[in-house]
Amino acid sequence: MKATAKAHPIQGLVKYHGMRDEQLRFPYHDSISVCTAPSHTKTTVEFDPDRAEDHYQIDNKEVDGRGAERIKSVVDHVRDLAGIDHSVRFVSENSFRTNIGFGSSASGFAAAATALAEAAGLDLTQPEISTIARRGSASAARAVTGGFSHLYAGMNDEDCRSERIPVADDFADDLRVVAGMVPSYKETEAAHEEAAESHMFQARMAHIHKQMQAMRDALRAEDFDSVFGIAEEDSLSLAATTMTGPSAWVYWQPRTIEIFNTVRELRDNGVPVYFSVDTGASVYVNTTADHVDEVEAAIADCGVETRVWRVGGPAQILDESEALF
Rank of each mutant, 00 (worst) to 15 (best):
K2P: 01
K6V: 10
A7F: 05
P9N: 04
Q11M: 15
Q11E: 11
K15P: 02
K15Q: 14
K15M: 11
Y16H: 09
G18K: 01
M19N: 13
R20L: 15
R25Y: 02
R25A: 03
R25G: 03
H29G: 10
S33Q: 02
T36C: 14
E46N: 04
E46D: 05
P49S: 09
P49Q: 08
R51K: 14
Y56W: 09
D59W: 05
V63D: 06
G65W: 09
R66M: 08
E69I: 03
K72M: 12
H77D: 12
R79F: 12
I84S: 10
D85V: 10
V88F: 05
F90H: 10
E93I: 10
F96H: 06
G103I: 00
A106K: 03
G108S: 14
G108A: 13
A112Y: 00
A113H: 02
T114D: 09
A115F: 03
L116Y: 01
A117V: 04
A120H: 04
G121E: 03
L122T: 07
L124R: 08
L124Y: 08
T125R: 06
T125G: 06
P127E: 08
P127I: 06
T131P: 00
G136R: 05
G136Y: 03
A138C: 11
S139N: 07
A141S: 15
A141W: 03
A143N: 05
V144T: 04
G147D: 09
Y152T: 15
R161F: 06
S162Q: 11
E163I: 15
E163P: 03
E163H: 13
I165M: 10
D169P: 02
D170M: 12
L175D: 00
G180D: 06
G180L: 05
M181L: 15
P183F: 08
T188F: 02
A190S: 13
A196Y: 03
S198Q: 07
S198M: 08
H199A: 11
M200H: 14
M200L: 13
Q202D: 15
R204C: 04
Q211N: 11
M212F: 06
M212Y: 04
Q213K: 14
D223T: 10
D225L: 11
F228T: 08
L236A: 13
T244M: 14
A248P: 00
W249A: 07
Y251N: 03
P254Q: 13
P254D: 14
R255I: 01
T256N: 02
E258P: 05
F260N: 01
V263S: 00
R264T: 09
L266H: 01
R267L: 08
D268P: 01
S276A: 15
S276R: 13
S282K: 12
V285G: 03
T288L: 02
A289T: 15
D290P: 03
D293Q: 13
C302I: 07
T306H: 06
A315C: 11
L318T: 06
D319E: 14
D319N: 15
